[in-house]
Amino acid sequence: MHVTLTINDTKHSLDLDPRTTLLDAIRSHAGLTGTKKGCDHGQCGACTVMVNGRRINSCLSLAVMHDGDAVTTIEGLGTPEALSPLQAAFLETDGFQCGYCTPGQICSATAMLEEIRAGWPSHVSETLDGPALPTEAEIAERMSGNLCRCSAYPNIVAAIRLAAAEREDAA
């Protein structure tokens, strides 16, 4: 089937087996292997990308469901020479070890901070309608769909808080 995806502002016209997941389309057909496959079942979050600005597990979605969608992957957030604030913060706090879950963590965190800014509540929020804040508890709760077996969690939370604080300062 023919599918057109805009990945990191570049249009990809792909001819795909309808069984192809969005994850495999990104990795094997668009050649962007920064997005990782950890479980292929929506259990680990390593494949997290942003579709039209929202984070999703790309392994749980078929590519044909995303014809015309705009996808942002880890490669679209920054480069080794020009890191995004979250990428720089992960590097600074050692928010990873083996690095395999890291692209998913960073894509997830990028979208998650927008969710907090938009006031979306979480399981640990005090109220459903109050402003949401990037506290340790909120971040840990909202990032729990991204597993890290090296268990860099304390450093991941620190990285996200650092990036969030820098953005507050800049605002």
Binding site: S28, P80, G99, T102
Partner: peptide, 16 residues
Amino acid sequence: GALKVTGRAVYTGDQQ
């Protein structure tokens, strides 16, 4: 680290 946080570190399953 910069390769890992930007998705440029190539792991076995990424090899083509």
